[in-house]
Simulated scan of single mutants.
Amino acid sequence: MKALDTTALVLVIIGAVNWGLIGFFRFDLVSSLFGTGTAFTRIIFALVGIAGLYSLSLLGRGRDTDRDRTEVK
Protein backbone atom coordinates (compact mmCIF):
# COMPACT_ATOMS: atom_id res chain seq x y z
CA MET A 1 0.00 0.00 0.00
CA LYS A 2 2.94 2.34 0.46
CA ALA A 3 3.41 2.73 -3.31
CA LEU A 4 -0.28 3.55 -3.78
CA ASP A 5 -0.13 6.12 -0.98
CA THR A 6 2.94 7.77 -2.54
CA THR A 7 1.37 7.79 -6.01
CA ALA A 8 -1.81 9.35 -4.65
CA LEU A 9 0.19 12.00 -2.81
CA VAL A 10 2.16 12.89 -5.95
CA LEU A 11 -1.04 13.20 -7.98
CA VAL A 12 -2.65 15.39 -5.31
CA ILE A 13 0.43 17.65 -5.32
CA ILE A 14 0.27 17.91 -9.12
CA GLY A 15 -3.39 18.84 -8.85
CA ALA A 16 -2.70 21.41 -6.14
CA VAL A 17 0.07 23.04 -8.18
CA ASN A 18 -2.17 23.11 -11.25
CA TRP A 19 -5.03 24.71 -9.29
CA GLY A 20 -2.61 27.21 -7.77
CA LEU A 21 -1.44 28.20 -11.25
CA ILE A 22 -5.04 28.52 -12.39
CA GLY A 23 -5.96 30.62 -9.38
CA PHE A 24 -2.98 32.96 -9.46
CA PHE A 25 -2.15 33.20 -13.15
CA ARG A 26 -5.14 31.72 -15.05
CA PHE A 27 -2.72 29.17 -16.50
CA ASP A 28 -3.74 25.50 -16.75
CA LEU A 29 -0.46 23.58 -16.90
CA VAL A 30 -2.02 20.17 -17.61
CA SER A 31 -4.11 21.48 -20.50
CA SER A 32 -1.19 23.43 -21.92
CA LEU A 33 1.03 20.34 -21.87
CA PHE A 34 -1.46 17.80 -23.19
CA GLY A 35 -4.09 19.89 -24.98
CA THR A 36 -7.40 21.35 -23.92
CA GLY A 37 -10.15 18.76 -23.67
CA THR A 38 -8.12 15.85 -24.99
CA ALA A 39 -8.75 12.35 -23.71
CA PHE A 40 -5.33 12.25 -22.04
CA THR A 41 -5.97 15.54 -20.22
CA ARG A 42 -9.32 14.25 -18.98
CA ILE A 43 -7.65 11.04 -17.77
CA ILE A 44 -5.07 13.06 -15.82
CA PHE A 45 -7.80 15.19 -14.25
CA ALA A 46 -9.78 12.04 -13.36
CA LEU A 47 -6.72 10.38 -11.79
CA VAL A 48 -5.99 13.51 -9.75
CA GLY A 49 -9.60 13.53 -8.56
CA ILE A 50 -9.51 9.86 -7.60
CA ALA A 51 -6.19 10.42 -5.81
CA GLY A 52 -7.76 13.27 -3.86
CA LEU A 53 -10.60 11.05 -2.72
CA TYR A 54 -8.18 8.26 -1.85
CA SER A 55 -6.11 10.74 0.17
CA LEU A 56 -9.05 11.18 2.52
CA SER A 57 -8.29 7.66 3.74
CA LEU A 58 -4.70 8.74 4.45
CA LEU A 59 -6.04 11.43 6.75
CA GLY A 60 -8.08 8.90 8.67
CA ARG A 61 -5.21 6.42 8.91
CA GLY A 62 -2.89 9.08 10.28
CA ARG A 63 -5.30 9.84 13.10
CA ASP A 64 -5.80 6.16 13.92
CA THR A 65 -2.04 5.64 14.08
CA ASP A 66 -1.56 8.62 16.40
CA ARG A 67 -4.34 7.37 18.69
CA ASP A 68 -2.83 3.88 18.79
CA ARG A 69 0.56 5.29 19.80
CA THR A 70 -0.85 7.29 22.70
CA GLU A 71 -3.03 4.44 24.02
CA VAL A 72 -0.24 1.84 24.12
CA LYS A 73 1.78 2.78 27.20
Rank of each mutant, 00 (worst) to 15 (best):
L47D: 10
A51H: 01
F45H: 03
G49P: 06
T41C: 07
I13F: 00
D64F: 02
V17G: 13
R42T: 06
T36P: 00
L11I: 01
S57P: 04
R63A: 11
L33M: 15
E71F: 03
A39R: 01
I13M: 01
A3R: 05
A46I: 09
Y54W: 14
A16Y: 09
F45C: 02
F24C: 08
G15H: 06
L4F: 04
I22L: 03
L21C: 14
R42S: 12
I14R: 00
T65R: 15
G35N: 05
T65A: 11
T38Y: 11
G52F: 09
A46F: 15
F40I: 14
G15E: 06
L58F: 07
L59F: 14
F45V: 04
Y54V: 09
I44F: 00
V12H: 01
V30P: 10
E71A: 11
D68I: 15
L53Q: 03
L33Y: 14
L29E: 06
V12K: 05
I13Y: 00
G23H: 08
T38W: 13
I14C: 05
I44Q: 03
T70A: 04
V72P: 02
L58Q: 05
T6E: 13
D66Q: 08
A16D: 08
D5H: 15
I43P: 00
G20Y: 07
F24H: 12
R61E: 12
T41L: 03
M1S: 04
N18W: 04
I13R: 00
F25P: 01
D5W: 13
T70V: 07
D5E: 13
F45Q: 09
G23A: 14
A16I: 10
L47R: 03
L47M: 10
F40Q: 13
L47E: 02
D5A: 15
R42W: 07
I43Y: 13
G60R: 10
I44K: 02
A46D: 14
F27C: 06
G35P: 07
G23T: 13
T6Y: 13
T7M: 15
S32T: 13
I43R: 11
W19D: 12
L21Y: 08
E71N: 04
F24N: 09
Y54N: 07
K2H: 07
G52P: 00
V10I: 03
R63P: 00
F34H: 08
D28I: 12
S55A: 07
L47W: 12
F25A: 14
D66N: 10
V48N: 00
V17Y: 11
T7F: 15
S57L: 07
F24P: 09
L11M: 11
T38S: 14
D28P: 00
W19E: 15
L33H: 06
D5N: 15
V48E: 07
T38E: 10
G60C: 02
F27R: 14
G20K: 05
S32F: 09
Y54C: 09
F27E: 02
K2E: 14
F27M: 08
F24V: 14
L4D: 03
A46H: 09
I50A: 06
K2C: 04
D64C: 01
D28K: 04
R26Q: 09
